[in-house]
Design a protein around this nucleic acid. Structure first.
Lengths: 338, 338
DNA sequence: CGACAGACGGACAACGTTGTCATAATCTCT
DNA sequence: AGAGATTATGACAACGTTGTCCGTCTGTCG
């Protein structure tokens, strides 16, 4: 900026005024400044500007589990788009489900003075964020609530969704329902499992530990778990897969074996209607989840000091048949999805 | 930091030393400072720090078309992970294929003094980036080359891939091959179309404009295009879909109609092996694409001043049959994919 | 012609850090 | 014990901006 001022033969402040479009600069002078800017390829330093003005950085931080997962990338996309409407950029990072890494990333984001944080929490203690919130960096949790912190959260009705899924299986006559989940350390998994057990209890079906399989982290282990459970004595006649990675593995394994076990999966996914065997799914609106969270965050950034809110979004049972026999195989009613 | 110094009864500089882990501070004094830091909840301001030290912002910028698309989110994921190993965060934004928006975003990123830029270009002129490169912000293009700028690029062998795909169809006896593409304004589409035409020319099959359908932007229009082409006189017996969105639409339409037209799609996608009809795919390693680009960028950031390079990564024909009759339907040989 | 707005330009400090240098305190060695 | 080396600490300026305030110039009106 000093160089520009020298080249244009004006003072530093005048360059600042021109660059920021402030009034009270003569046309001729402004033109000279702009010419110098162009010649030197000057570009205002956003960091210095924000620093001096005490302004925020026009950046929001997003912590998710893994950017490559469609669920999270949809969230990133929606929030980035909404941020852009406010001339704000998105600084995103994956926690990889590691609480330590999550805390490091969050601290890093705070030290960069982001305007706000959107977090899909992996950690089990977010009390360290309280100080940040007090210092004016609002936090909104997404998909799972934060722990030891009072902050906004936008969640899904995981429990109700799982309950409806199992209710559907029970209505179809199933009594032995295998449940596949990742880890009960994850809030969503606990809720979904509880929902499944609600439905079983409602139907008067007792709990059988052999029918619940945890530690299913990816499609491959899901497939293995399905295979294993089917070869036990008194195998399940139906499965509930508690996330989309698990569902994919289960679909594949059941299809390969030609098994007619019923399947309901939590989370819809893009090509679920083209799977080679029927698949009823507990779906929800991921974009709405992200939208609501971003709205909440921006309201906080804009000064909303009301009490923290928790929003719970509904799920929907997308019925596409349960087993090869339960519906005629055919194109999905909904046609091509965007 | 001034407050911390006052509370600890030491000078500003000593606090700075402690906070940055510099040597030459007595243990007792360091402890006093750390106590004050904890009490006040002090957190170093990353922007001010970078500003003073003339250091970069420990941030890289990524411009892609749309974060929600699995191809791009994989790129984002890989680059974010690699950046993290260097204590660098990723500032990502979607251009939505809009050149104006792309330029705005790039300028914004530059004004934030990112350490480097990773760009999947949508625009048709990137000459304005030359100044930035000269000023020390390296740029690496991904998937498509930049225009009017000499910069590193990591590309796919689009032409060769499409040629192999069509060659395979020709070998299977097809003479009328419908080609579905988005827009020839996009570099990758032009290359893929050229590859297809190469193969046709090699086989002595003349060009028929009726068999090339552009403007196919999403699965729905792809399905419509397939439907339309199949109802024309002398319809194609095979299709080449030039990206994954188009492939999905084509799969669905062909399956719904029970058509036995062959299909080859460019871009593999996660559940392609579970599609309800055979689908041979031109695949490649998206993660490698991102990895190479990030490596190149980091090398530049670390001072590599060698001549810009263009890396072209190979594609691979993943054969899973072409039509319902051409292979026995069954589980993919590869088993469950990660 | 003088006075007074009003429009404009510039000097300076400050934002929150860190690099440089100076100084004070302690140690080492003959 | 004293010279020199080493260590610990602090004062100050600077990074690239912008807000504040003051000074100057132009024009207008009585």
């Amino acid at each position: 900026m000093v160089d520009v001022a020298r080249l244009a033969g004006v003072s530093l402040k005048t360059v600042s005024r021109v660059v920021n479009g402030e009034p009270h600069v003569q046309r001729a002078m402004a033109d000279r400044v702009l010419a110098a800017v162009a010649e030197l390829g000057f570009q205002r330093n956003h960091m210095a500007s924000a620093l001096r003005a005490g302004r925020a950085s026009a950046t929001i931080g997003l912590i998710i589990e893994e950017l490559a997962n469609p669920f999270y990338s949809t969230i990133a996309h929606v929030t980035a788009a909404m941020a852009r409407d406010r001339d704000t950029l998105l600084l995103s990072a994956s926690s990889e489900e590691d609480p330590v890494r999550e805390e490091q990333l969050l601290r890093d984001l705070c030290s960069r003075r982001v305007d706000g944080l959107l977090v899909v929490p992996a950690g089990c203690d977010h009390s360290f964020l309280n100080a940040q919130v007090d210092m004016g960096i609002p936090v909104v949790f997404l998909d799972r609530p934060g722990t030891n912190i009072e902050a906004d959260a936008v969640l899904l009705d995981n429990r109700g969704g799982a309950r409806n899924g199992v209710r559907r299986l029970v209505a179809d006559g199933h009594r032995r329902i295998g449940v596949l989940l990742d880890s009960v350390d994850v809030h969503t998994m606990r809720e979904r499992l509880a929902g499944a057990q609600d439905a079983l209890a409602d139907a008067g079906i007792g709990y059988d530990g052999a029918l619940v399989r945890g530690g299913v982290r990816d499609p491959a282990t899901a497939a293995a778990a399905v295979a294993d459970m089917l070869t036990q004595p008194n195998p399940p006649t139906a499965f509930l897969a508690l996330n989309n990675r698990i569902t994919v593995g289960a679909v594949q394994e059941l299809w390969q074996r030609g098994s007619d076990a019923a399947l309901v999966g939590f989370d819809d996914f893009e090509l679920s209607h083209l799977m080679p065997r029927p698949l009823t799914v507990i779906g929800y609106d991921t974009r709405e989840l992200a939208r609501r969270a971003a709205q909440l965050l921006f309201a906080r950034i804009d000064g909303d000091r009301s009490r923290p809110r928790t929003v719970v979004l509904p799920t929907e049972l997308v019925e596409r048949g349960l087993t090869a026999g339960s519906t005629r195989r055919g194109p999905a009613a909904s046609g091509v999805r965007r």
